[in-house]
Write a protein that binds this DNA or RNA. Structure first.
Length: 494
RNA sequence: GCCGCCUUAGCUCACUUGGUAGAGCGCCAGAUUGUGGCUCUGGAGGUAGCCGGUUCGAAACCUGCAGGCGGUACCA
């Protein structure tokens, strides 16, 4: 075989693409997500939560109701069968693994057990904008106390987390007991009808009162002509539900919402129990310094249907987000949580009350990028040492090592392009400075340092190319011994 | 999952009733022996999402599939 060239026709060339719903992240986004995780976990630690990491995979039965069945093992989760035939699945949140961990280690844990966790979770479902199949969450949970004050503390924690991250957000709080009490007092008994009513209530923010009214009754036809079957409530039952849902109208303070709900739920014992919980949450929140502007009661918050047993809460972003075309982008909630008293019992049979909050790091980062723009979070590059000649490589590396030892990032250009391209490279990396050690500098014992930010600013006033080139804006030549100090002063001014 | 719209260069988009493709931006190079911007010049880059059909001829018309967007359902 003399011809070693590959035969293009017989070669398989895969298309370079990322899997649907999975995305690459570049430096600026990683930095932003890291910043969010760091600030939020700091707040969690200040509240006395300890770190816990659990694996990305769990046995599928530990993840709860989305068990892979033999026909469709991958609905909702990414599941695979281990070599011992057991089904494993990638976690879809951080709460189910916590329940498993708590059940497994219960006797050895200090109780109540307070832990935080962060990391990627995976959901095998239809992706969309701001909705990926892999994303980062950051959770804090308290396991082992049924006090409403534990819920209040979790809410205060979430509020503090958003505040520390510099993100304006509103926490909206409800209690499942209110919803259950309402349904019972209206005589809505069937599980299907209960769920239909809850789903209708959940859509208040999107469809408004008229839409909810239709969904509670016969049903609703949407813009695309699709018909959604309603809950089929009688008119006499729809009215109290609407009264209930409207209790928070007009940005009412927490105490006023409680008062209004007291009237709607006057003859429901479970509803009264829920109101008692919320009253204690309100008292605790006030003591913790969480105002009515930061956290409100909102009876239309429902969240997951078979999961939460008491308080539920959701965080809404108070920023106007627009995409590149200036179109409004609707972000869903950027965090949520609530009380789940039955999760650990799935493993032990013993009811262990628990409550927690999940901070939607990826979604929040996506929203912030839209608001702040790509450039705001752009990562700075290293100081770039221009490469003139193979034979002087030693001088370049020596300086690079010195710069790093002084605590700054540095890199010797290792491509094979000419000087112009190297300057362009440094520009594109957003480097603070480029350093030149050419023949002239080596002969004279000097270095030439160009402040790229300063040069960029000066260039705005120069239109003539010759003046730009010969003026060498932002550039100085100085003794080699002064290089580090000069670079320090440039980097410090960033 | 269901309904609707869309898919042409890396990106944003053109191409009068079917005659095998263009622009702007970006990228690379030169003008400028060792200088990122500006300006000018040149260059690379496309099996028109994929498969089939209609036709002498399809980017354009039709079927199917895939992907994207919007709505709806679901959302631990």
């Amino acid at each position: 075989m003399t011809d070693q060239a590959p035969e293009p026709t017989s070669e398989f060339r895969p298309e370079a693409r990322s899997p649907r719903g999975f995305a690459d992240k570049r430096a600026s986004q990683i930095a932003l997500e890291r910043r969010l995780v760091e600030t939020v976990t700091k707040v969690y630690e200040d509240f006395g939560f300890e770190a816990l990491q659990t694996p990305a995979f769990e046995y599928a039965d530990a993840l709860g109701k989305f068990l892979p069945d033999s026909d469709r093992p991958n609905v909702g989760v990414f599941a695979l069968q281990d070599d011992d035939d057991q089904w494993m699945a990638l976690r879809y949140d951080l709460t189910a693994p916590l329940a498993r961990f708590a059940a497994q280690n219960w006797d050895g844990l200090p109780k109540p057990f307070r832990r935080y966790a962060f990391g990627p979770v995976y959901r095998n479902e239809k992706p969309g904008p701001g909705r990926l199949r892999e994303f980062i969450q950051c959770d804090a949970d308290t396991v082992g106390t049924d006090r409403p004050e534990a819920d209040a503390e979790i809410i205060a924690l979430a509020v503090a987390g958003f505040k520390a991250a510099g993100v304006p957000a509103l926490l909206r709080i409800n209690n499942r007991k209110l919803l259950n009490g309402l349904l019972t007092s209206l005589g809505v008994a069937g599980a299907d009808q209960q769920m239909a009513v809850l789903r209708a209530i959940d859509k208040l923010d999107r469809l408004g009162i008229p839409g909810v009214e239709l969904l509670l009754g016969k049903g609703r036809k949407d813009d695309s002509g699709d018909f959604t079957k309603g809950a089929g409530l009688a008119d006499s039952a729809i009215r109290p539900v609407l009264d209930f849902v409207m209790a928070a109208e007009g940005g009412a303070a927490r105490s006023l919402v409680l008062q209004r709900l007291g009237n709607v739920l006057a003859n429901s014992p479970e509803g009264q129990a829920g109101l008692e919980d919320l009253t204690r949450i309100d008292t605790a929140l006030t003591a913790l310094g969480v105002s009515d502007e930061a956290a409100v009661f909102e009876p239309s918050i429902v969240r997951g249907l078979e999961y939460y047993t008491g308080a539920v809460f959701e965080a809404e972003l108070l920023l106007e987000t627009r995409d590149e075309k200036g179109e409004m982008v609707r972000f869903g909630s950027v965090g949520g949580g609530g009380r789940y008293d039955d999760l650990v019992a799935r493993f032990t049979g013993e009811r262990v009350p628990a409550t927690g909050f999940s901070f939607g790091v990826s979604r929040l980062a996506a929203a912030l990028r839209l608001v702040e723009g790509e450039k705001a979070n752009a990562a700075r590059g290293p100081i770039v040492i221009i490469n003139f000649s193979e034979s002087d490589m030693g001088a370049y590396f020596q300086l690079a090592a010195e710069i790093r030892a002084a605590g700054m990032a540095a890199e010797v250009y290792l491509g094979r392009s000419g000087m112009k391209a190297q300057m362009k490279y440094a520009d594109r990396r957003l480097s603070p400075a480029a350093v030149m050690i050419g023949g002239d500098e080596l002969n004279n014992g000097t270095v030439t340092i160009k402040d790229l930010d300063l040069g960029r600013d000066l260039a705005l006033q120069i239109s003539d190319n010759k003046a730009w080139r010969e003026g060498r804006p932002g550039q100085v030549t100085l003794p080699r011994a002064e290089a580090i100090n000069h670079l320090k002063s440039i980097v410090k001014n960033d």
